[in-house]
């Protein structure tokens, strides 16, 4: 079982060089049945990662490029009048797939964004009063450009925590970049060459295994202390909610699982904290490292 997660991560690492940690977090997000938000500048490999992830998992995959003129119906689907049967037929949109890549989500209008975020939360789509359940598993990978880019609409703050994790890939290191340059044209090919290592049953088993990871009392206390720090230190205008605490606990377990452990360590908490808390605290990706370090310095690890 641990081998499968290792396998996913190593395969994707060959695809996106030098980003093992981010890939691991993406897998964590998947194991926790959460949705992933990738925030980065264009050309950092966001799309490659999400596409690769879908391939490796062997899941049905749809990609939607969000633009300012994209309407909610373009995602959810719409009812079309069928002249032969004299009735409305529902034509499902791209959201009816197991993995949905919502590219550059913040280019779309708030209305469209809301439609997507709502579907993510409820795992169903309601069109013309009829409810259509979304497939299982349903995994949204959204990418967004940093907010200061022109022509972007920020995601509504209150709905940001529909995303379980937010990661950013960042620039590759020199060594990785060198390899990229040399093997650049190989990359697209290898995306299709990725072997599917997981079927639906195996994924369900893995997701179940996350809950079996031991979260000792001290880890739970550490999580509580971290969350409380954001609430009571007065440094944060949007402190972490109880939902964030739950997410932190779950992500910690999943992270421990990807490390082939059946118990969580404080290091696991620290590893997932930035990804879980960053967007919920409303901190932009480039400030995040400093803020998180400040939190860790202030909150002692509970042993």
């Amino acid at each position: 079982m641990n081998k499968t997660t290792q396998d996913i991560i190593s395969q994707l690492s060959e695809l996106i060089l030098g980003k093992e940690e981010q890939i691991r977090l993406a897998v964590v997000c998947l194991l926790c049945k959460g949705h992933l938000l990738i925030e980065d500048l264009p050309g950092m490999g966001k799309t490659t990662l999400s596409h690769g992830l879908a391939n490796v998992l062997g899941l049905s995959y749809q990609r939607v490029q969000f633009t300012s003129d994209l309407l909610p119906a373009d995602i959810t689907g719409s009812s079309v009048f069928n002249t032969s049967q004299q009735s409305f037929d529902f034509h499902p949109g791209p959201i009816f797939s197991q993995v949905l890549l919502a590219d550059e989500i913040n280019r779309a209008s708030p209305k469209t964004q809301s439609a997507l975020l709502e579907a993510m939360e409820e795992r169903q789509v309601t069109v013309d009063g009829k409810t259509h359940p979304l497939p299982e598993p349903f995994f949204v990978i959204a990418t967004q450009n940093p907010l200061h880019q022109s022509g972007t609409h920020p995601l509504p703050e209150s709905q940001l925590d529909r995303f379980f994790l937010r990661i950013s890939l960042g620039y590759p290191d020199e060594h990785a970049e060198k390899s990229l340059i040399l093997g650049n044209n190989l990359q697209r090919q290898s995306l299709s060459e990725l072997t599917c290592v997981l079927d639906l049953n195996a994924l369900a088993t893995l997701q179940q295994a996350v809950l079996d990871v031991n979260l000792s009392d001290s880890i739970v206390q550490y999580i509580i202390n971290l969350v409380n720090f954001t609430r009571y230190s007065g440094q944060f205008s949007d402190p972490l909610s109880p939902r964030a605490s739950i997410a932190l606990g779950l992500a910690t377990r999943a992270y421990a699982l990807t490390q082939s452990r059946d118990y969580a360590l404080p290091d696991d908490v620290q590893a997932v904290f930035a990804a879980v808390a960053g967007h919920r605290l409303n901190i932009s990706a480039n400030e995040l490292d400093d803020v998180v370090k400040g939190i860790f310095d202030n909150v002692a690890v509970v042993l």
């Binding site: 360590l265 404080p266 290091d267 620290q270 860790f296 002692a300 690890v301 042993l303």
Partner: peptide, 9 residues
């Protein structure tokens, strides 16, 4: 203050 960081660190 090493007792405040994770055991691995």
């Amino acid at each position: 203050e090493l007792h405040k960081v994770t055991p691995a660190q």
